[in-house]
């Protein structure tokens, strides 16, 4: 049981590491956000689940479940608001990008004062 938890934890930590590597290597903000959000979400879920599987005698699954649910709900929202703010603040996409529908439609100046 403890060995199973250890292996799950190791898989989670590798995903966390790859997420951080993606944040370092990707060429612009939006691609960094893609790597940072996805890999760290599943990575932290696996890391926490692995620790609580390996040490089940502690009996504090409840708080771990709360933390996991919290990560699942807030991580996409924070990256979504950050991507929106970055686009509105005028951060350019990388040169390898194909298209940008949001810029073409120009809804940013409608309604709110900047």
């Amino acid at each position: 049981m403890e060995l199973l938890g250890a292996i799950v934890t190791l898989a989670g930590s590798i995903l966390l590491f790859l997420g951080a590597l993606g944040i370092l290597r990707m060429p612009d903000v939006y691609n960094r956000m893609q790597a940072g959000t996805k890999a760290t979400t599943l990575g932290s879920i696996l890391f926490l689940a692995g620790i609580s599987i390996g040490h089940y005698e502690c009996g504090c699954f409840g708080k771990i479940i709360i933390i996991i649910l919290f990560v699942i709900f807030t991580n996409p929202i924070s990256s979504n608001t950050l991507a929106r703010a970055a686009h509105f603040a005028g951060v350019k996409l990388t040169e390898r990008s194909v298209k940008d529908d949001l810029k073409d439609d120009d809804i940013e100046n409608k309604g709110e004062e900047k």
Partner: peptide
């Protein structure tokens, strides 16, 4: 180069730090 890049990096650091706090707690 921009503030958004730094915020993304800070977000990633926070998630990893939460995992490590739980590790230390156990």
């Amino acid at each position: 180069p921009t503030i958004a890049d730094r915020a993304v990096a800070l977000d990633g650091m926070t998630i990893i730090t939460i995992s490590l706090i739980v590790f230390i707690a156990y």
